[in-house]
Design a protein around this nucleic acid. Sequence first.
RNA 1: UGGGGCGUCGCCAAGCGGCAAGGCACUGGGUUUUGAUCUCAGCAUUCGAAGGUUCGAAUCCUUCCGCCCCAGCCA
Length: 556
Amino acid sequence: MSNTEKAKPVNFIRAIAEQDLAEGRVAKIITRFPPEPNGYLHIGHAKSICVNFGMAEEMGGECNLRFDDTNPSKEEQEYVDAIKEDVQWLGFQWAGDVRYASSYFDTFYEWALHLIKAGKAYVCHLSPEQAKEYRGWATEPGKPSPYRERSVDENLALFEQMRAGEFAEGECVLRANIDMSSPNMNMRDPILYRIRKQSHHQTGDKWCIYPSYDFAHGQEDAIEGVTHSICTLEFADHRPLYEWFIENLPVPSKPRQYEFGRLNINYTVTSKRKLKQLVDEGIVQGWNDPRMPTVAGMRRRGYSPAAIRNFCDSLAVAKTDGVVDMAQLEFFIRDDLNKTAPRGMAVLKPLKVVISNYPEDQVEMLTAPKHPDLDLGERLLPFTREIYIDQDDFKEEYSKKFKKKLTPGKRIRLRNAYVIEADSYDKNEAGEVVQINASLIPDTLGKNPADEINPKGVVHWVSASHGKQATIRLYDRLFTVPTPDKGEEDFLSHVNPNSLTIVEGCWIEPDLANAANEQGFQFEREGYFVADRYDHSPEQPVFNMTIGLRDTWSND
RNA sequence: UGGGGCGUCGCCAAGCGGCAAGGCACUGGGUUUUGAUCUCAGCAUUCGAAGGUUCGAAUCCUUCCGCCCCAGCCA
């Protein structure tokens, strides 16, 4: 491997774009990210955003944000707002104003008229069931609709009636006149317009007919001068139709469509429909639940935009439809947070330690760097006679395996503080260890004990009298199987019932209570945590676990 | 099944006729007041399968096998 730069994953679309630029086929790369506002963006969209905005950015081009809002029955303004926020949070800015397919509806209507006049579109009164029959099947060609031969004038009049609301929903549609025997089902007289008597989040009640995806998408691209229209593999079959419209309509430019493999990650789902189901059925607490693979969820979980972008950029843009390991995403989350997150100490399962030879009323303000490498300044750690350590860091019996834990008669380094030795411990009626009685080894601040009996391990701690209490929410994967949406059973049957654990009564070092919402930290020896975007306050601190530290030792 | 797309290490993925990059994961060593980080090392005689062409094939040709997508008045 070269030590100056890492091998970058390939992007075959980018290679095409570079060639188009070099050969002068296009003067500037224009891409677009075209979500339908029918749900929140997820990690798969994040990759698409990185591809579209990233390519434009790096190649001196532009990328539009365009809502593909051609179906009012599924779309909402809430989603429009959330999507805009997510794109910007990821660190991208679209060229000019936000675009809407719906703002081109007048043009699409004119173009529909254009096709009718050219004898290339007709109003079809077949019912949905009949249309399905007429469409034929893979091995058998479809039959022409009995309405296919209507005259131009009749079609013009009928289409005007459709537009005027004189037909009921489902009564008729406008179809293109292409090829009922095409092996590509998309070419068997596809629908251009259907009736939807619903108000639209952008256009209100202006229309009761709405263009189909196929009749809209390429033309939207053409209107905006998009040069490279990038979408996922399942649209490859639509490309001939995309091109048919571009060829048969007086469009201002000729965009080209390219498809790449959609991003899948194991132990989660990336389908707006399924994510919506998790929300609607109350399995999670909303689209921005930290367990969700949505951009808003990952944000609330404490994933940084940089980490998400690094992950997306590590993925190749290719035509294979694979499933990426969650571990790969997690690597980039840790990688970024390790480099940037201030350190702190938090005790999740408190066990009191009383240091018998430390004066009861004494408080020493120790200092510790906020980051081991970065110059983020120092924090103050009050050290007192009573402190808390984690229950897991004390073992009643010493063994080689527990050499890094505190055990009776053994010493341990308190992180950023002194070395102590456990003298005895107390149990309650239930037999649980409730208190450690220890003694402080003098003159061990920043140095090893004079007797050279050095501690083998380091544990984190919080002052019992000066620490603050906090609620910490722990997360586990949302599904118990790698591919919850494959196989026979409903994906909901694989939901992990223990994906959320709320731990009350955790102790955090005092400064941490003042964390700004959304500030991420590394709680040393535990993992990365973020002050909840909505629920955290200095009075009632609430942290969400972003991800645990890499753990290479077998826990007992 | 007709059409479209894809099959290279557990996962992602280079390679495009000259003798298998890289990342994640994993394993082992070193450093360490985070069992983290960092660091060093290991990790496909083999490229879905079988034939063929060639001095030489993951790369070319045949056939076969497997997986995904379309058959909504969804996008």
